[in-house]
Design a protein around this nucleic acid. Structure first.
Lengths: 228, 228
DNA sequence: GTCTATAGCAGGATAGAC
DNA sequence: GTCTATCCTGCTATAGAC
């Protein structure tokens, strides 16, 4: 009961501070000294507990990032399971909410996405954890669920379905990731009210989009690469 | 005519190599020594020509990135001007084409976006160039053009319009930026045919989305942050 | 486990020869 | 303008005391 959890051990403190700093500035942008200063301990402690910097980075993903990703995935799943009348709209909402609001605190979510996007963008060894164990399965689940709920009759080509799922995910990631730009343009902070409006927009826009790819014919001509 | 352009001066060579490397690995990820090695010259040359590393980075944006952004913007403008029956679809197509196909070579475009996304994501001093001089005006132009072409009658709230324009831009940026993920999922390389299909999808999906935000009512409930 | 001390190297920047 | 030589700082990592 009163088992004094080893939560405040130096090892954990280092891990926590490392996560914050790596998320904020990236692997290259952070020095071990910075981390140990933040964790209020000596440089050597990192090498004792994690061997080297690279390993500390990986451990952040294994010990901190992964469990949180699982919680997020669970949140999405539960959200789906709780719906008695699932629809594309409700699935998209579940996705957007999991990412934009989800079960994580604002800070936690921000760190989480920073770390993820960094890995997706310029992969290190940690990509294996991020892409293969998390993003891949999540995306497949999302796409499959969505496909099953699409209005029958007009079969939606496989590629269009993939494009659409990517568009939706891309939008969600963009709104998370380009916060600075979004705030700059809309003039709004990312508080809960704003995020709810954002989720509502994403759902509306995406559902319209899904209709679009089923019904819309393009009257536009394709173009050549264009001149310089 | 045969003016031997100073294009192969050491200064230019450094600038070129710096751009490639900065785009690839980011400011922190590249050392001056690496750049000068690639430009086949001495370390001191950077300090002679640019003062310091930070300034070299800024100069890459001012001297290389900015002109290219202007070309891109021009490409978008000409594309709009050449339309005798402009519509939301044709504007979105112009945007998507400018970014995905545009007047740049594949390599050039890739570098261009890498540099841009880096700045949007973790801004340095160069953000001023990127956001204020380029992205801002471009985005405003896109949004204004789009707004004017929206079906009249049902006025679209200002915020929804901004959200939609952001969604479209976000999608375009995502398809450019998450190439690895997109290729992984669709199994397609980014050749011209694929990019044309992508542009077509973006247009269809976005037009549907625009319809969606005008006509769609949400029957879904908003949610609290959710439990941990 | 946590510290001090230090090795050993790579980074940015500058002075000054040519 | 371009190079050589060098300074100094800050980095990772390790050895060894406590």
């Amino acid at each position: 009961m009163t088992q004094v959890d080893d939560t405040d051990s130096l090892r954990e403190r280092i891990l926590s501070q490392a996560e914050v700093l790596f998320a904020d500035k990236g692997y290259q942008g952070v020095s071990v000294r910075e981390i140990t200063a933040a964790a209020d301990c000596n440089v050597a402690a990192v090498n004792y507990h994690f061997g080297n910097k690279q390993n500390l980075y990986l451990e952040v993903f294994r010990a901190r990032w992964l469990p949180r990703a699982k919680r997020l995935h669970e949140c999405f799943r539960r959200s789906l399971a709780s719906q008695d009348a699932p629809s594309p709209a409700s699935v998209i909402q579940a996705l957007a909410q999991a990412f934009l609001i989800g079960p994580l605190s604002d800070e936690e979510r921000h760190r989480h996405h920073q770390l993820m996007v960094r890995e997706l963008w310029e992969p290190t060894e940690a990509l294996e954890v991020v892409a293969d164990q998390v993003m891949g399965p999540f995306f497949r689940e999302f796409t499959d669920t969505l496909r099953l709920l699409m209005p029958k009759g007009i079969g939606v080509e496989e590629e269009r379905m993939a494009f659409s799922a990517l568009s939706i995910l891309g939008m969600v990631l963009y709104f998370n990731f380009a916060r600075v730009a979004v705030t700059r343009i809309t003039g709004c902070e990312y508080d809960l009210a704003f995020k709810n409006r954002l989720v509502a927009h994403i759902v509306r826009f995406s559902c319209g989009g899904l209709d679009g790819i089923r019904t819309r014919r393009l009257g536009l001509c394709q173009q050549d690469p264009g001149d310089a």
